[in-house]
Every structure is written in C-alpha cells, then in structure tokens.
Computed example of a mutant assay.
Amino acid sequence: MTKRHLTYLACTAAIVGTGLAAAPSAPSADHRSVHRVNPGESIQKAVDAAEPGDTVLVAPGTYKESVRITDSGVTLRGSGAGRTVLVPGTGKDACATAGNGVCVTGTDDKPLEDVSVRSLTLRGFEKNGLWATRTEGFEVRGVSAEKNGQWGIAQERSVRSVVSHNVAEDNGDAGLFVSNTTDTEEGARDADGTVIRHNRMTGNRIGVTVRRLRNLSVERNEATGNCAAVFVVGDESEPRAGALSVTRNHIHANNKHCAATPRLPFLQGSGIVLTGAEDTVVARNRVEDNRGTSPLSGGIVLFKSFVGAVNERNDIRDNLVTGNSPADLANRDTAGANTFRGNTCTLSEPAGLC
C-alpha cells in the first residue's frame, strides 16, 4: 500500500471516529454493548453474541477467518484499515466456502437492517472481500478491499446503502459492485437512494460497476489505474437501468489493459461508460488522460449494450473532459435522445459534442 493510500485511510479513520453515534433507529446507548475481539480470538463468536445496536470492536491484528452477519443492527468495526486485517482462513461456514471475507446476508422476507462494516482491511479472498445481499440501510465505511478474486465490496438486492470513504485496490473485477441481482435475469431494481461517495478505486478491472439499478448516486469518488473507471450497465429488461447520477468524480489515467471476456471486449482507457441506460445525469466530473483502443475507450462514452439496448435521454453536462483517447466525449450509440451540453473538451465522436 502506498503512502498516499495510508494517508487516505488515516483521514477515513478520523472521519469514521466522528460518526459512530449516528443511528437513529438503534437502541439507546444504555442498551448497547461492545464486544471486544483481540488477536487469537474469534470475530464470528463475538458477532453471534451481538444484539441489535451492539458493536463488535476488533483490535489491531491479522485474523484468518471469514465473518457472517445475519442479524440486523450490528456494527462490525476494526481499529482502522491496515491495522485490523482479515485474510482467508480455514473456516467451513457458507461465507468462507463461497470465498468471501465478510458476508452480510438477509432474506427476501426479512432483509437485514442498519448493519455497518467499518475500519478494516479485507485482503486476498478468492471471491469477494465483502458481499452483502438483501439489506436495508447498510453502511460500508473506511474499509480497504485489496487483491480479492472478483469484487472488492459488492452488494445485490439492497436499498438505501451508503458506501463511503473506502479504498478498493487490485481486485479481479470491480472494486465496488452494486447490482439488482447476480443469479437471475430481471429488470432494474430501485436502490431507494443508495449513495457511493468519497471512495478511491485503483488497479481493478473496473472501478465501480452499477448494474441494472435505478435511483442512486455515484459522487465525489476517485478512480485511477483501472482498466475502466465507472460502468453503468443496463439491457433490454424492464424497468430499464438508469434514473441515477454520476457527479463530481475525478476519473484519471485508467489505462491498465484487461483481456476480453465472454461479455465484454478488452478494456483499457475507459472513463465513464453508459451502456443500455436511460435518464442518467453525468455532470461536473473531471475526466482526464484515459487512453486506449478498445471499443469502450474514451473519456465519457455512450455505447449500445451488447444485447442491443440503447442509451436514451441521458444528460452529459458541465464536465471537464481532457486528454482522453480516442475521444473525450464519444456517443457510439444509435439513439438520438441523449444530450451533451456545457462540457469542456477537445475531441468528440461525432464531432460537435464539445
């Protein structure tokens, strides 16, 4: 981890320390408990003993285990990313055998509410650093997800989440991944105001993937050194993906090369890509020096989805888009209902978008 990353996480830890008390639906302070875990002790045992409103506080150290949270209102908090580190162990529970570091798992009938994971590192898991499904009001803050095989921090079937002040580095696919579902085909779900903000993504295949969702924001993040920075992905399903915003992000030099997959061509030099999305606002981003020769390369790119769904009624405005190749702005779609206005750029496809 670089000195820059350590500085970023130190700032995050300070921010986290000021925000612990904000949980209006939690029990009063008199009824909360703190379950402390020291090196050599089981985090899972403490989580299992926690009641709604309790905090599991994990001391500095390296813990060889996966952790499964299945009760609402529980906070899992380390002593700071880089200080409290979870790595793969020998556990045989469902989370460990699936290859995940931390699993937050609700059900369709009983989603987990107001769970929080904070201030720790999840490193080297075969699949995902953190995996959440069927949650409401889930918060991930001050987490470093590093060198995990698929996604760094990922969730599906969830609403009103806050994913903030995290670092996602060198993960096999997306650093941050949010989706409607991952195991069935269906239309976009309403994320009910989920927020992805103040995160840093570097060295991943894709920095942030938003797949088949509506009603969320991606704001004030930094993405650099990935193959692609931000993907908003939809298809022909109904409801369509979109009705979301990508604003005030710093997207620069995402020029890592990633080989083609059965779903996508090779990736390199992609800033913000919309494919099969509608009614999305991409505004006031700084998008610089993303360069490549992939069909998806460029600063801000609209691309018809690979199943034929077009982008419609998207508003690309007031962005600073410079030094990208082959173009700063690229509309490689067939639909004509997207708008480009007020952007500062040099080259566009077709000409005239700057």
Rank of each mutant, 00 (worst) to 15 (best):
K3A: 15
R4L: 12
G19W: 04
A29H: 06
R36I: 11
N38G: 00
P39Q: 04
E51L: 13
T55M: 13
L57K: 12
A59M: 08
P60Q: 05
P60N: 05
E65P: 01
V67Q: 01
R68W: 12
D71S: 15
S79T: 13
T84V: 07
V85W: 03
G89F: 07
T90H: 09
G99A: 08
V104P: 03
P111M: 07
D114T: 10
D114V: 02
S119D: 15
L122F: 05
W131F: 12
A132N: 03
G137L: 08
V140R: 01
E146H: 07
E156K: 04
R157D: 11
R157Q: 13
D173K: 10
G175H: 05
N180C: 09
G187R: 07
R189W: 01
A191T: 10
H198K: 11
H198F: 13
G207L: 09
R211K: 12
L216Q: 04
V218K: 05
N221F: 04
A223D: 00
T224W: 09
N226R: 03
A229L: 06
A241L: 04
N249L: 04
H250I: 12
H252R: 14
H252V: 14
H257I: 11
T280Q: 09
V281K: 10
A283Q: 14
A283N: 12
R284D: 15
R284I: 00
V307S: 14
I316Y: 03
R317L: 09
N324V: 05
P326H: 07
